[in-house]
């Protein structure tokens, strides 16, 4: 199934791009259609490539997607989902509670996820130490303005 979805998806993205490109605002200066030329070109190449890809897959009939099988076994899907959540939470917290605390939480979260709860001690030490070192290196030594 997967091998048909990808080409269809690519073609679909191309079509969406095409529609969006046509609807781009006109320019008051120079050529009014100038802004849409390049996006149109990309959309057309993408649609053609998508169709060719579909035909190729259709002809080939064999394909191996070992990686997708990994999605169904073990903890991998859980890892991906939880780390996505952690990244989103980090994004939200970063500006709110500042760099140092949010980074400690983020790092600790990932470590507990991957390294397991049993090693809680080393997880916390690593999270705090690494966050503090980077906070010092970037904020103080390199004078990056961190929240």
């Amino acid at each position: 199934m997967v091998r048909y979805i990808t080409p269809i998806l690519a073609t679909l993205v191309g079509v969406i791009m095409l529609i969006n490109a046509i609807n781009l605002p006109k320019s008051n200066l120079g050529n009014p259609n100038g802004p849409m030329y390049f996006p149109l070109l990309i959309a057309i190449i993408l649609i053609i490539s998508g169709i060719v890809y579909f035909l190729q897959e259709f002809k080939a009939r064999v394909n191996d997607f070992a990686d997708f099988r990994a999605l169904r076994i073990g903890k991998s899907p859980a890892y991906l989902l939880v780390s996505l959540m952690l990244m989103l939470i980090y994004t939200v917290l970063f500006d709110r509670i500042g760099f140092l605390y949010s980074t400690i939480l983020f790092l600790a979260g990932l470590l507990f996820l991957l390294n397991g709860r049993k090693k809680w001690m080393s997880n916390i030490i690593i999270a705090v130490a690494f966050s503090f070192v980077t906070w010092y290196a970037f904020g103080t030594l390199l004078q990056v303005s961190l929240p």
Binding site: L24, K26, S27, N28, L29, G30, G34, P35, P39
Partner: peptide
Amino acid sequence: DLQTGVYR
């Protein structure tokens, strides 16, 4: 867009 200032 640099040439025309249009937002895309």
